[in-house]
């Protein structure tokens, strides 16, 4: 029960976005994907969810290539939560979550009792039962993100792939969504912007730089002053979180302005 990328390269148009990336996501691990803007995090996730087809290499689910499996079969194994979706028409929260049942349903049959109870329990899990009849686009960013997690849960997949689920959320909802995901007991692959949050939640992180994997391992080993300098080009101080002991980043001011700041 593993998800594995073997020498995956992805081209978008003439450009190579991802080059020879190999990594393994162990069963039930919480794995973070890190890297600056444009380093290929989203492209990598899309190759896992079959949106992008690799130009070379393969994405393997239990040893079988996901791009050769049936789409519905993959959708029952791998669920995806994107960055806040813009939905252009009225759809209720319940209908939005019900879409997650698509890979389990026959082409034309009404939603059955199982579908409805799976949707209800997914909404309860993300604490959104009270929003069921609301229109999706009227929700706040944090609520939308939780509803999309509920939709992923109704797919009853054992792998959850998330693309920056904390983007545009304030600090309460950032930790709330990651606590929620961490508590599900699923195999998680998540792209994250915030290295400190990643360090708190991930068992293992992979750091991408210009489409190549440049470091993998436990957050404490990957997130170092030198790597952040080298990959992000940012000057930081790394300290240990007082409660978790995981690395946290503090930005620094330019030396020349430091005196003025004091």
């Amino acid at each position: 029960m593993t998800l594995e990328l073997r020498d995956v390269s992805v081209d978008l148009g003439p450009r190579r976005i991802l080059s020879d990336v190999s990594l393994t996501v162990r069963d039930r691990a919480f794995v973070g994907l890190l890297g600056p803007n444009g380093s290929g995090k989203t492209t990598l996730l899309k190759s896992v969810t079959r949106v992008n087809r690799p130009a070379a290499g393969s994405v393997l689910l239990d040893g079988r290539t996901v791009h050769e499996l049936r789409a519905r079969e993959v959708a029952r194994r791998i669920a995806f939560v994107g960055q806040e979706t813009v939905v252009e028409f009225d759809i209720t929260v319940r209908d939005m979550v019900m879409l997650g049942r698509l890979p389990h349903q026959r082409a034309y049959a009404a939603d059955n009792e199982t579908d409805r109870s799976v949707v209800a329990s997914a909404l309860a899990t993300v604490d959104c039962s009270h929003l069921a009849t609301r229109t999706f686009h009227t929700l706040s960013g944090g609520e939308k993100q939780r509803v999309l997690v509920a939709r992923a849960l109704t797919q009853q997949a054992d792998h959850l792939v998330l693309d920056e689920p904390t983007a545009h959320l304030d600090i309460r909802y950032q930790t709330e969504i990651l606590e929620l995901v961490a508590g599900l007991g699923l195999t998680v692959l998540v792209a994250l912007h915030d290295l400190g949050l990643a360090a708190m939640y991930c068992d293992e992180v992979h750091l991408l730089s210009s489409g190549r994997l440049c470091a993998s391992g436990p957050p404490g080993q990957v997130i170092t002053v030198e790597r952040v300098q080298q990959v992000y080009g940012a000057d930081v101080i790394v300290i240990a979180h007082p409660e978790t002991g995981t690395p946290q980043l503090l930005p620094r001011r330019a030396v020349s302005n430091l005196r003025a700041a004091r």
Binding site: K46, R50, R72, F80, L102, P103
Partner: peptide
């Protein structure tokens, strides 16, 4: 993309 990840 949502449709793709839902198996369409």
């Amino acid at each position: 993309e949502t449709a793709t990840t839902l198996g369409v």
